[in-house]
Amino acid sequence: MIGIQGLTKRFGDTVVLDAIDLDIADGERVVVIGPSGTGKSTLLRCLNFLDAPQAGTIRIGDLTVDAAQATRQQILGLRRRTAFVFQNYALFANKTAKQNIMEALVTVQGRPVQEAEARATEILAQTGLADKAESYPAALSGGQQQRVGIGRAMALGADLMLFDEPTSALDPEWVGEVLDLMRQVAEQRQTMLIVTHEMQFAREIADRVVFMDGGRIVEQGPPSQVLDAPQDERLQRFLRRVG
């Protein structure tokens, strides 16, 4: 169970997140849509303190953090309960595909190398990259890198997986394979919070679609409602624009 209350983030005088409230049930897949610059990515980045929010509370599983006075231990706790998939993949450039997946298991979770290696091999097979285990990120295509990025996130066994526009930086030819892998993750009832511009994908995968504008949640509900029968005028305009 994920609970977000009054989450607020300002950059200088600009309010990027304006007291966001959002609960996510276990196994729920929530897709966040909205115009760019509206705080969608910041929402994700505030949940694991890549950006530090100024106010609000974040509850993930057994950990509740008051953003205004989060301790270093609490921030690590949030990060260890979440997994993050980056728009630009952000694979560790000095590590092979397999090592990228193993890294958190060994260094952060303290698991034996052999066990981590077995898990990484398993995940690489799942992502269709078994033959790329020893490749460094620089030698992989964008689509392959992002699949490793998702694999790295899968390995963590996190309470919540965060996807920050995972296909936006990809050449169109690689988008399909990354979305396919995300479908696989979704099938395992992994709790997911996804920022994306892929409306078809959102419709197909989301239990709930959240529309954000101006740092607030304007409208939310099942895809059939939000995407097909939008109430708010801003959402209607946004959907017309993205087609």
Binding site: N48, L76, R79, T82, F84, F86, F92, T107, L156
Partner: peptide, 29 residues
Amino acid sequence: DRSQWEAAQSIGMTQAQMMRRIILPQAGR
């Protein structure tokens, strides 16, 4: 690159782990 720091943070590394495992090896190069 900034993304290397953020990726290390996102998997829950401490400052020391991040420096030792990710940042210093790349800085060394």
